[in-house]
Amino acid sequence: MISPAVVLLLGWMLVPLSLTIYFSFLRYNLITPGANPFVGWENYYWFLTDPSFKAAMANTFMLVGGVLLITVAGGILFALLLDQPMWGQGIVRIMAIAPFFVMPTVSGLVWKNMFMNPVNGIFGHIAYGLGVQPIDFFSQIPLLSIILIVSWQWLPFATLILLTALQSLDQEQLEAAEMDGAGSMSRFIYIMLPHLARAITVVILIQTIFLLSIFAEILVTTNGGPGVSTTNLTYLIYVSSLLQFDVGIGSAGGVIAIILANIVAFFLMRMIGKNLDA
């Protein structure tokens, strides 16, 4: 009964994965047909010593780190706020999670044109109204612009998960602490934060897995530029494989991306495994 799913997934994983590893040791370029000789670690050497690799790694870390910082901090605040008594909580929640359901190409293009365009975008109009020089987002702060767009997409995810965790907090514990004279700050630090620790870790791990693969937002806004200033690892591999047709080097990059994601996945799987027992 399990077997169709297992066989399919196994094939889906093993066939391309072994091909990626195999290609990564070949000199294999789609524009220069002919023999594809075995070249050992050469592709890895070229990929790793390429200056754009170093830039792409730095950009990847900045992108993932920046988005995590904004979404986790913002998500905690938002979740705490939504957990408070208020009118129309359902409507507020619906509005707040909407960005998560907007497809990546739409959010990339809408932010790029309707908001961040220095002439016609809303930010440009505001700057003009205030009489200051508008920021040209994608040439002055390209990576930060992408971080902001992606954060907008992922803040709802963090908020929703942290809110779920917050709502499972024992209210009596909070009341007891309050009666014992604990202020709202110490209730947050000593009761809520420890309770949220697990959810925060999960948010960080899951988002990291997805954020390492950010692609569409970069493709429709900057194409990785200017220069390589918004090229992350995923985008760099895409450029080598499908734009420069260098299957060998692209595959070597692919192997490195897999290793990187596996480090994160290892910790995530440990947390999932622990919960499956319970």
Binding site: V6, L9, T20, F23, S241, G253, A257, A261, M269, G273
Partner: peptide
């Protein structure tokens, strides 16, 4: 089950070329 979930964590770009 754990293994199935772990396949979801494979970065798509790692298998883009094949």
């Amino acid at each position: 089950l754990m293994w199935m979930l772990s396949t979801k964590m494979l970065p798509p770009v790692g298998v883009l070329v094949p």
